[in-house]
């Protein structure tokens, strides 16, 4: 039950994009088409879940054990870069067309603040190993959800007569604002 709450909190009520402002760059950049957005979301979810696990290990068995809190940022970012490299290689092996479709966005997951943010939140919340993994997974799911919803809307926006100054980023941001307003409906729900 606890784990379910962690999952729902990470994916819905404290959605990483719409509530925590993490992962805005890919959200603005990769959310133009549904299939691409979904693939990006999947890749990100994978990196988030696996990084969460490794980060927990690093935090518990290295940083805390040897008393090196000041190396936290450096250590985490290195872990994340390594995992993104891994994911990139895996995707390339599994599906060449997918690799081509995601293009530059894969290495960009490294600079996705959502991942580093996730890494930093885990020691802050003091999650156990299982909780960290679920948290990472939930964060990824929520991220994917927001991306896919936005992509669905932006796909249709191509046919609309949006005033010129609003085209592109301003419109995406305003839609994101409305999505954030909609998600406010979930507040207070985690005390289930």
């Amino acid at each position: 039950m606890e784990l379910l709450l962690v999952f729902l909190g990470a994916s819905i009520t404290n959605n990483f994009i719409l509530a925590r402002f993490l992962g805005i760059c890919p959200f603005l950049g990769v959310s133009k088409e549904v299939p691409t957005a979904f693939s990006m979301g999947l890749a990100t979810t994978f990196v988030m879940t696996t990084s969460a696990m490794v980060v927990w290990f690093v935090q518990t068995f290295i940083l805390e054990k040897f008393g090196l809190p000041y190396l936290q940022y450096v250590a985490f970012i290195l872990v994340i870069s390594a995992f993104v490299q891994l994911t990139e290689m895996a995707v390339r092996k599994i599906s060449e067309p997918l690799y081509k479709a995601l293009g530059i966005f894969l290495p960009l997951i490294t600079t996705n603040c959502a991942i580093l943010g996730l890494a930093l939140l885990i020691p802050l919340k003091g999650y156990s190993f299982i909780e960290s993994t679920i948290f990472g997974f939930g964060a990824g799911v929520g991220f994917t959800l927001a991306m896919v919803l936005m992509a669905g809307m932006r796909e249709r926006l191509a046919f609309a007569d949006v005033p010129e100054p609003l085209q592109g980023a301003p419109m995406t941001l305003i839609i994101a604002g409305m999505m954030a307003m909609a998600f406010m409906g979930f507040s207070g729900m985690i005390a289930m």
């Binding site: 896919v148 919803l149 669905g152 809307m153 796909e155 406010m184 979930f186 507040s187 729900m189 289930m192």
Partner: peptide, 29 residues
Amino acid sequence: VLIRIFGGYPEGVLYSIILMNMFVPIIDK
């Protein structure tokens, strides 16, 4: 039902509809 029973607000009609509005492009597609 989720919002009225489990959420922080007593009424949820507003949110239930605009949340589903977000899914409409995907649903249609």
